[in-house]
Amino acid sequence: MSHAWQYFTNNQSQILTWLRTTAWLAVVPLAVGLALSLPAGWVASRYRWSYPPIITVGGLLYTIPSIVLFLALPGIIGTKILDPLNVAVALTVYCVALLARVVADGLRAVDADILNAGSAMGYTGRQLLLSVQLPLAIPVIGAGLRVAAVSNVSLIAVASTLGVSQLGSLFTIGNTTGDTAPIWVGLVMFVLLALVLDGLILAGVRLMTPWRRAVGR
């Protein structure tokens, strides 16, 4: 392990640049994916007929192997094969595929009595959605977001097989040189990144749902 640490300090600036790219690739698709899933999930929960098609399309998109999307996107959106944008778009697709269902299920799971109480108190439809239904669905959405975050991070590594320059490049370097140091550094960085993202989402959910702590859950 001391060997790996030495490798890290010797190549610090390169590794930190890769870390920045990788963190960007992990966070941006998650944020964009969530932003797109909220309206899609809301439509699926609000209009009963739209639930099966939205969920089926999501399920189908989720079965597409990541390497297929990484390869097909340059041909479809006209990017270069090594453009990190391919990876970002592919991961966004996976996020939406997973989260649209989670958002829909989370919104649907809110007790009808609570919504009735809200409208009896004079909440309009929009207020009811934004300040009652959505906050109550946050724990469910947060759980889905954590799954999406962790699986995205490990998919990013696969993109380095095509030569996209990021932390996964440490693995291709280890493969060509037969040196385990860069591989260990890469594994540790990836796991740390996943843990940090996971922890941030968990903390966000806790911050946004103070009533759950108040009743001691």
Binding site: V153, S154, V158, F171, G174, I183, L187, A194, D198
Partner: peptide, 19 residues
């Protein structure tokens, strides 16, 4: 199960290959 999910498969494969 959660810990394993955070490990990138590509990195694991290369590590096992080299070791």
């Amino acid at each position: 199960a959660n810990a394993i999910r955070a490990v990138p498969a590509f990195g694991l494969m290369i590590l096992l290959y080299v070791l």
